[in-house]
Design a protein around this nucleic acid. Sequence first.
DNA 1: ATTCTCGTTTCATAGTTATTAGGTCGTCAA
DNA 2: TTGACGACCTAATAACTATGAAACGAGAAT
Lengths: 350, 350
Amino acid sequence: MAKRISQSQIARELGVSQSLVSLVLNGRRDGISDKSYKEIWQVAVANGYVPRGMQPIHAPGSRSNYVGIVQRGGLKIDQPSNTFSHVQQGLFKVLQQSRISTTFLGGERDLNEEKLFELLGQRDPLQGIVILGEVSESFMRALGELRVTLLNVYASAPGLCHSVGPNEKQSVDQIVDHLVELGHERFAWLGGNCKLGRHQMRLNALRECLAVRDIKLDDKFVVSVEKGDRQEGFDCADELMKRVGDDHSQAPTAWVSYNGLMARGAHQFALLRGIRIPEEISLAAVDRTRVCTEIHPNLTSASSNPELVGMEAAKLLCKSDDESDKNRILVDLVIASEFSEGETSGPVAG
Amino acid sequence: MAKRISQSQIARELGVSQSLVSLVLNGRRDGISDKSYKEIWQVAVANGYVPRGMQPIHAPGSRSNYVGIVQRGGLKIDQPSNTFSHVQQGLFKVLQQSRISTTFLGGERDLNEEKLFELLGQRDPLQGIVILGEVSESFMRALGELRVTLLNVYASAPGLCHSVGPNEKQSVDQIVDHLVELGHERFAWLGGNCKLGRHQMRLNALRECLAVRDIKLDDKFVVSVEKGDRQEGFDCADELMKRVGDDHSQAPTAWVSYNGLMARGAHQFALLRGIRIPEEISLAAVDRTRVCTEIHPNLTSASSNPELVGMEAAKLLCKSDDESDKNRILVDLVIASEFSEGETSGPVAG
DNA sequence: ATTCTCGTTTCATAGTTATTAGGTCGTCAA
DNA sequence: TTGACGACCTAATAACTATGAAACGAGAAT
């Protein structure tokens, strides 16, 4: 580690006295020329001068004023209508009671190890960082280098940090239960974000929940695409109907979609094609965000309440420093799923 | 001003040596008992010990590490699909280059003067605060007490702070121009957030733009409601069609909506009722957010790009301290509007 | 009991920073 | 020319902090 620079060195470099440097760096302005003031600060900062006596970064268990937020790659701040904005709302609700505020650090793509250090090096330490969604392991390790409590929501990084997530199995089970009770036996899957583990979890859960009830999910009616927005829901429904073709006897009567946004897209597709929901097709989504109820018809849906996910995450972060460092026990919370019957599901036709 | 406390005083208070205090406050952990470490930090912080050599606050043109964000009442973080998330994206884009991050302070409702002081009293000062939307003057004054640069987007508080906003007149003019060119002469307004000045500005702009072209906006076809979300668009369209009644001869052929969300709601209403867009009705929105293009049909729309609004706001904040305090000149920026022809507008029927 | 070891703390002092009284150098008016 | 003044800066030194070597004390090993 290079030796720290001293005020005297700064003074020598500029040909002034150490006294002057001291005065300037402590903010004295009267009786000091603007030129000196600026030059001295400039040299001080450029040479990485740091104050003596205390490095606030090392303060233990001091509640910091900030919690950082990092998003998985592929998301930008301006596409938030999904789950994560609810998570943030939950975080905010709890954290504001401790006068902690949340700060957005960036997305997986915007950040690398170097940038993270730059970003966090100089300011007061964060209470923790919440990672929204699934990020690469290398990225997670880079975050780990920061020696800050990490917490991953809607994804887990086993062994690397805490996590809070939804109960996918239960959500899908609630949906299937409801649809089977209505008489549905032929299901379709409208899948999005298919590269994410989350998609696989939901689809697998669907297969298993159907299997338990002696129903097989026909691969022909499993449509999955890369993203998970409204348009993708529309496209999936389109593709699904193409696969169904003219033989309607075996066509699925219940569509389960990866999330609420896609369900809305699929619903719009149905409206355009004159497919009546819920009379002909029942539509349900694994979701519990605002999109389910933002407009009629409300979506039949089940998932863990993302606001609760955020609230639990916040509680975990607030607690984390009481015991902290020693007992590095990682917590994985699974939030219970809630089911809501909407206007997009009904008894099977005929 | 009270005299600053020294390491030796901390040491005396705890009955340890100054050396130990020095080691601890510089973050040394090996060979130091946890008890000492915590006690020393605790006393140091409690007594307001500050490091020597430099007070970064006084650095000239020192950028703070944070910009605060405050939302108008009536919005929560989890209902962001609208304009402001784009604004935040723009802020982020520019600010991250200066290693500044944004931090959410709360909504107009969550905050009062006292809370603001609590929130900001102890941490390093903010580079500035961005106020999203229209807030009460008393709230704005409370913010003013913080002695931080303020900037209002999508609203202006004349004489109190900077502002950056869209060019409503131009947006509406572009829309009207486009629709009139297509032959439309009978217009309807689907208005939302009617209590906000923004709504009035847009509606007035529409009246004026039509007047210039010798078209009168029939008050019968001006529908305005309190909120401005998808459902409200649906409801407005519903109400509008009720007012049209059976006499279709004078029915409006062009619907202009307050924003994109409401246009989507109105579009869904049209789909349900079998009203064909754009064949029977042309639909346009004052908007430039993702909602315009998130799914087909793209909306015909015009407005200032909210991301640009955010970017300009960020630039203003970064600049604001170079000259800063002395010349307290308030800036009001108006961002040019962009028009985009979508799939929801077409030549008038007949 | 003695010696060793290890974790913790202090001593002693070199290295840095704060502060006050005073110096230098233009400028301006008598 | 002179001296008063103000803006800017430094010398000198008091005050504070950092750090390697040494000390201390509680077990563990001999």
